[in-house]
């Protein structure tokens, strides 16, 4: 695990326990707990999953199944901000591939990857529901529409 310690801070189990306690007695709390941890820590380390399983009395196999099933969860450290490039049909024909390759060049990472300093995570998505604005780039929940190659760098910088 040495590699991950290098760049991602170890998970604070007390903080994790606080999140678990928030949902503890609710039915179907597992997915809510994992979503909250994902939102606050940006990834789900193995020891956190073990802790969740233990505290919620849910088998670790089920926690792992869920954590690997949904793309909302990440088992590897995620950067801030998370950059989502829409490659849906409308964005694709409006030039998403060129925007994507510009972002790849600027950040040095491929879709699905995170850079070593945890400064960016890059992900392609299929549709953000605002095709008229294409090509669309979403950075930490903020939508940037009509992104041209020239504008790409500014869009990335605006979120640092």
């Amino acid at each position: 695990m040495k590699g991950t310690e290098l760049c991602a801070p170890a998970a604070d189990l007390e903080e994790i326990d606080r999140i678990i306690d928030r949902y503890r007695d609710e039915k179907g709390s597992l997915i809510q707990v994992l979503l909250t941890i994902q939102a606050e820590h940006h990834w789900l380390p193995r020891e956190v999953l073990s802790r969740v399983a233990e505290r919620l009395s849910v088998p670790l196999t089920r926690v792992l199944h869920l954590a690997t099933f949904a793309t909302a969860f990440s088992r590897i450290p995620r950067g801030r901000p998370e950059v989502h490039v829409c490659t849906g049909t409308a964005c694709h024909v409006r030039g998403a591939p060129r925007v994507l390759s510009t972002i790849e060049e600027l950040t040095g990472i491929q879709p699905g990857e995170t850079d070593l300093d945890l400064r960016y995570s890059l992900e392609t998505v299929n549709c953000l529901g605002c095709c008229a604005l294409g090509p669309v780039v979403e950075i930490d929940g903020k939508i940037h529409g009509k992104v041209s190659i020239a504008k790409t760098e500014d869009v990335l910088k605006s979120c640092e």
């Binding site: 088998p59 196999t61 089920r62 792992l64 199944h65 690997t68 099933f69």
Partner: peptide, 9 residues
């Protein structure tokens, strides 16, 4: 025992 489970999809 829950020693083996499914992962991924």
């Amino acid at each position: 025992a829950h020693a083996v489970g499914f992962v991924d999809r």
